[in-house]
């Protein structure tokens, strides 16, 4: 699971309002360099939840100051920034561990890089009806 994916995942169980951002408890993280795609990063940057991404950076054990506190239009023209963001979004792989819902404490295991977001039948919001 890349941090780009983490940025869009949430806990969708019954009774949870936001279920976001999920905390990362990483037991195995791999860094794998990939070709820099500035256009992709520029396009994706404005759609990101920035506080969630900064929290994720910290939780996978990367330096907190790897990303600035906020994104600005000026930064999107800054190659050093785009490279750092590319690295964070694309090159960090959480291979094993868990995602934990900040509201309910519900844990979603990650194994072989695949988060298991399945919820039990009794946890489904539509069971309320």
């Amino acid at each position: 699971m890349r941090l780009l994916t983490h940025n869009v995942l949430r806990c969708a169980i019954k009774g949870v309002e936001e279920g976001y951002p999920l905390s990362i408890e990483a037991s195995e993280v791999q860094m794998e360099e990939s070709p820099f795609r500035p256009d992709f990063v520029k396009h994706i940057a404005p759609t990101l939840n920035w506080p969630a991404l900064r929290q994720a950076v910290k939780q996978v054990g990367l330096p907190e100051d790897m990303l600035p506190e906020a994104v600005s239009d000026a930064l999107l023209g800054d190659e050093a920034f785009l490279r750092a963001l590319h690295r964070v979004l694309m090159d960090v792989h959480v291979v094993a561990g868990a995602l934990v819902c900040p509201e309910s404490g519900r844990r979603f295991p990650i194994a072989h890089g695949i988060p298991d977001m399945m919820i039990a039948e009794g946890e489904c919001p539509r069971d309320d009806k």
Binding site: M1, R2, L4, L9, R10, A12, T47, M117
Partner: peptide
């Protein structure tokens, strides 16, 4: 595959729907 492929186990887009809304 050279594009980033990200796999999730889940029920439809339940865990992704809000984060990927309109995207």
């Amino acid at each position: 595959v050279t594009l980033p492929v990200e796999v999730v186990q889940g029920d439809l887009a339940n865990a992704l729907e809000r984060g990927l809304s309109g995207r």
